[in-house]
Amino acid sequence: MKLIGALLILSASTAMGILAGRRLAARPRQLQRLRNDLMYLETEINYGATPLPEALGKLVKYSQWPVTVLWQETLSSLANGEGLMAEEAWRHGIHSFAEKADLTKTDLAVLRDFGTGLGMTNRHEQLKKFKFIQEQLGSLHSQAEVLRARHERMWRTMGILGGIALIILLY
């Protein structure tokens, strides 16, 4: 009986460790995905002068979960006929995306800032926005990457070791 309990504790703590580690790894991956997608959007705006709804439509297909939620939600808020501006639609997008993403408050704040004036200035000004957010996301990404390298293994080992420690204590 005790043995079964010990096994249960061990597997639970291991799983928790793995999950925490995975979450840590998800953040840099999603940040990188965002950077790629934003680069795609920038190209559409700069070279194609593609209107936002059309460009977002392309991104929905191009992107990956969960980042695609951001594009999907922004697009549907923009195109639902309520007459929202891109800025407002973007806020809706971020809101839905935040629930699915593994990003920090800082990451989301950077994304939120990007929405201000989205689409509503000339191409030159828009490109500046893209350049700026790329830099910001870039540094956030390297931070996240450092965190992941440092802590991902640690969380996993901690899961197992913590489980073992708990079992010993309870024994």
Binding site: I45, A49, T50, P51, L52, P53, L78, G83, M85, A86, A89, L118, G119, M120, T121, N122, R123, E125, Q126
Partner: peptide, 14 residues
């Protein structure tokens, strides 16, 4: 501004 956003599909740059 809102009218401009609506006529340009929120894409003034285009």
């Amino acid at each position: 501004q809102k009218i401009i956003a609506l006529i340009s599909q929120s894409s003034f740059y285009a």
